[in-house]
């Protein structure tokens, strides 16, 4: 019964995707868009499959993934530790709050030229940009989660003899986990978006660079391949995060 409903949901979800592809095919077939501007979907997916086995394409994906993971990991480590520290310690809080207030809304892409000038055109500048953009959603949700931990959970642990310095790891961190993972999810999507954009702006490799090269030479088919690839990458990473989430939050009502 349950699996039936689930397959039903999946099928229902495939409908709009199929519709989009059909619309796309229709636009091409009925001549609304010249194939040079909008290549037929069959051609794009064929090119994607063909590319998937080439080593240059692997190289581009690897470059993008390194930057994505590098930046995202830095953002998670910094965001979670600063967020928890700010929730637990009034002195750190007093320093972190105003700085976050100023830096969080700053569009970090605007800093990219500065990063390029300071860190060069290689991985570093892009990793720092991704980290800077993914950091704040993670930091803010960690802080929110850690500062709204139910008081009585902390009291219960203290009464059971947990020393104060262990409360942070034994109660605050696990209790804030739903919030932290929500932040990570936003951070991950932003990382995908930003790494691609950074590569479009200046790069010698990576998926974003592929798109720019294709656009320069008016290879419409090749423009779609990196876009679909980043979408699939995002989908896979999101799925992994989701799996991690349902494992870590198996006890929480909201999971």
């Amino acid at each position: 019964m349950k699996t039936n409903a689930l397959t039903g949901d999946v099928l229902l979800g495939l409908v709009p995707i199929a519709l989009v592809i059909a619309l796309w095919q229709g636009l091409v077939s009925f001549g609304f868009a010249p194939a040079t501007l909008l290549p037929p979907p069959g051609l794009v997916f064929a090119r994607l499959l063909q590319q998937l086995v080439t080593s240059t394409f692997h190289h581009e994906i690897a470059a993008t993934l390194i930057r994505l993971f590098g930046g995202f990991s830095i953002a998670v480590i910094l965001g979670v530790s600063i967020g928890i520290a700010a929730a637990a310690n009034p002195a750190i809080n007093a320093v972190v709050r105003p700085i976050v207030r100023v830096l969080a809304p700053l569009p970090k892409v605007a800093l990219y030229p500065a990063l390029l000038l300071l860190l060069g055109f290689k991985h570093e500048s892009k990793i720092v940009l991704v980290a800077a953009d993914a950091l704040f959603p993670i930091l803010l949700s960690t802080y929110y989660g850690a500062s709204t931990v139910e008081q009585k959970l902390i009291w219960s642990a203290m009464a059971a003899g947990t020393p104060r310095r262990e409360i942070l790891f034994k109660v605050v961190l696990p209790a804030a986990m739903p919030s932290i993972l929500t932040g990570c999810r936003i951070g991950l999507v932003i990382s995908c978006i930003v790494v691609f954009l950074a590569e479009m702006i200046t790069s010698t490799d990576g998926l974003g660079h592929m798109l720019v090269t294709a656009a320069r030479t008016f290879q419409a088919v090749d423009m779609f391949v990196p876009l679909i690839t980043i979408s699939l990458l995002g989908l896979i990473l999101n799925g992994l995060l989701q799996a991690l989430r349902s494992y870590l939050l198996r006890g929480f009502p909201e999971a």
Binding site: S156, M158, V171, P253
Partner: peptide, 21 residues
């Protein structure tokens, strides 16, 4: 001056750890 395992509370709101069985 603070909580300790010599005094055990049972709270009105249960306050069970949701991440533990």
């Amino acid at each position: 001056t603070g909580p300790g395992p010599d005094r055990g509370p049972v709270f009105q709101e249960f306050a069970l750890f949701p991440w533990k069985t």
